[in-house]
């Protein structure tokens, strides 16, 4: 990416690049997550933002609970049918472009809650960009997911392109 050359500016003070590259650079480095924490994974998400792991090292520490101010939805926890309606509404309220991380086995696939009340993966109701395995995933796995997402944003992969057609 052209902006890397910024370090080697030779005194001219001028840098040429493409507009979309600048936008991607900005988006990649300032993800504002909405922690949609419902269950056990939310406790591990708390560990991700606490000092030992510190999500802010990757520019994504400004957690926002208003969907209108955030562009990364981190669904951490089991989503049951009663909650799924709310999740869909929250996702719809976020401004484009927006990304979704399904943190943990429940959000990804329902996990061992294969029963009458649990949604078998949030991709039945909203598109997902990154799935994190684990029950719950370790904080390092969440950091890995965020950096992977940054790579995709850099590469210009459109959000939600991993959409699975759900049963709704």
């Amino acid at each position: 990416m052209g902006l890397r050359e910024i370090e080697n500016l030779s005194g001219s003070g001028v840098l040429t690049t493409r507009l979309d590259a600048v936008l991607r650079w900005g988006r990649r480095n300032s993800l504002w997550p909405l922690p949609y924490g419902t269950a056990c994974c939310a406790i591990e998400f708390m560990a991700v933002v606490a000092s030992p792991f510190d999500l802010s090292r990757f520019g994504a520490e400004v957690v926002r609970f208003s969907p209108r101010q955030s562009d990364l939805l981190i669904v951490s926890g089991t989503i049951v049918h009663k909650q799924a309606v709310i999740l869909r509404r929250i996702y719809a309220q976020m401004a484009e472009p927006k990304w979704v991380i399904a943190m943990g086995a429940c959000a990804s696939a329902g996990a061992f809650y294969d029963n009458y009340c649990t949604l078998q993966g949030i991709d039945h109701v909203i598109p997902v960009d990154i799935y994190i395995p684990g029950c719950p995933p370790r904080p390092e796995a969440v950091l890995h997911a965020v950096t992977e997402l940054q790579k995709r944003i850099d590469a210009g992969v459109p959000p939600g392109s991993q959409r699975t057609e759900g049963s709704v």
Binding site: T38, A39, G77, T78, V80, K82, Q83, I86, C106, F112, Y113, D114, N115, Y116, C117, T118
Partner: peptide, 11 residues
């Protein structure tokens, strides 16, 4: 309540 009722007792 019930937003995390994930069926422990049935499972």
């Amino acid at each position: 309540i019930g937003y995390l009722h994930r069926g422990f007792e049935k499972s």
